[in-house]
Simulated scan of single mutants.
Amino acid sequence: MKSLQLIFSNPRYFAPAWVFASLNIWFGTWAIYIPTVKDKLGIDKADLGIAIFCLSLGVFTIFPLASKIINKLGVGRATWFGVLLGSATALFPLMVPNYYLLMVSLFVFGASHGLLDISMNTLVTEIEKEDEQKFMSAAHGFFSLGGIIVGLGSFLIPVIGSPILHMGITVVLVLGINLYAYKNYIHIVAIPAEKEPFSLKLFKPLFLLGIVGFVSMGSEGAIIDWSGLYLKEITMAPEVLIGSGFLAFSTTMTLGRFLGDGISAKIGSVKIVALGSLIAVVGYILVLSGNTILAIAGFALNGLGFSVMVPELFRIGGNVKGVDSSQGVAFIAGSGYTGFLLGPVILGFLAESATLKHSFYALLGCVLLILAITFLLRKNRP
């Protein structure tokens, strides 16, 4: 918990951590109003799926450009620009009068989301380098905390009575804290990496990290989307417990991220990814037992295991020799988001052609792949 204490005691660390929370607060507030927007515009599920795809398209469109923007503006200014852009674009999807403008607004919202995601992870990487302090995992814990804040805020929906007003209040409050805090990081500029000619030796660590990012975030997305159905259909859980797997996963995910920096400082980034994958393996074994209580405990272990992986990947990716930190972070982000979006879809096709239990056997195989890759990373340490 040292990194959490560091964040709350020093504005230099709280400011970027709050940016992580801000991103999830804006996104989560939009997400809870998706059914409302669907009904307001009179669109069906297929149309809604295409509109949400536009959000993902916006995220991926900005990824190749993000490192150039960050290097041109400086990582601190790029992060602040992303905060301002995120504040403005968060309102658009709830204000649009028709379906076509919804697609455009979600594309812009997604682009601002992608820019801020890469810039804030690069920012934390640079601060860690300057100060020799680890708080990347705790910063990602703040992202998870943002989701909890959204959940608590959802109780105010009947009181507020208007999606636009709800988002407006959210934007003002979140931006107000950022206005107070941004001066602590806006001056930070990423230290240029000593460029090296392209070689397979240079690319290999990034490629391996990209595979881990794809698999780990793909697994996260699959558990988020499929854990409830798994408990219902495979373990025959009573209705009251169907959401327990996701709750257990989310709770340990948040807790693990607040603990991760201290463990990483003691054993190193690659070893903590290996430890996380071992914990996730045990989690999947419990999930595959077919017993409801053991499966819920397994989802909790999955959350704990995966919680430390993504923050460490960003940390390692931002420190690959011969690669700018923003480019390393962008590569990890792109690989991870691809997995997060495609993982649940791939698992869905597998569940349809075989069974949902076979899908979770595939996830067990994926986490074993991560464990194997950590051995390669130790031999080719970035």
Rank of each mutant, 00 (worst) to 15 (best):
V174C: 05
V174H: 02
G176Y: 00
G176R: 01
I177R: 09
I177G: 13
N178I: 07
L179S: 14
L179W: 00
L179V: 13
Y180K: 08
Y180E: 05
A181T: 13
A181H: 03
A181C: 12
A181I: 06
Y182T: 08
Y182Q: 10
K183R: 13
K183I: 11
K183S: 15
Y185V: 02
I186S: 11
H187Y: 14
H187R: 14
I188E: 02
V189D: 00
A190Q: 07
A190W: 02
A190N: 04
A190M: 06
I191W: 07
I191P: 01
P192S: 02
A193T: 04
E194Q: 11
E194K: 14
E194Y: 05
E194R: 07
E196G: 01
E196P: 01
P197W: 01
P197L: 02
P197C: 04
F198L: 11
L200W: 09
L200F: 09
K201W: 03
L202H: 02
L202M: 11
L202G: 00
F203W: 09
F203E: 01
F203K: 02
K204N: 06
K204V: 11
L206M: 14
L206T: 00
F207D: 00
L209V: 04
L209F: 11
L209G: 02
G210Q: 12
G210R: 11
I211N: 10
I211W: 10
G213W: 08
G213T: 08
G213Y: 10
F214S: 03
F214Q: 02
F214Y: 10
F214E: 10
V215S: 09
S216D: 03
S216L: 08
S216H: 03
M217E: 00
M217Y: 13
M217C: 08
S219K: 02
S219V: 14
E220L: 12
G221Q: 01
G221P: 11
A222K: 11
A222E: 02
A222Y: 04
A222W: 06
A222Q: 05
A222R: 07
I223F: 15
I223T: 05
I224L: 15
I224V: 14
I224F: 14
I224A: 12
D225E: 04
D225H: 08
G228Q: 12
L229N: 07
L229E: 13
Y230W: 06
L231C: 08
K232R: 10
I234H: 03
I234Q: 13
I234R: 05
T235K: 08
T235Q: 09
T235G: 00
M236E: 14
M236D: 14
A237G: 10
A237L: 04
E239A: 15
V240K: 04
L241Y: 08
L241C: 03
I242E: 13
I242C: 06
G243I: 11
S244V: 06
S244I: 04
G245R: 04
L247W: 11
L247T: 15
F249D: 01
F249C: 00
F249Q: 03
S250N: 15
S250E: 12
T251P: 01
T252S: 15
T252R: 02
M253W: 07
T254M: 15
L255A: 15
L255F: 15
L255W: 03
G256T: 06
G256D: 13
R257S: 07
R257G: 10
R257L: 12
F258G: 01
F258K: 00
L259Y: 06
L259P: 03
L259W: 03
G260C: 14
D261L: 05
D261C: 05
D261K: 04
G262A: 07
I263G: 02
I263T: 07
S264A: 10
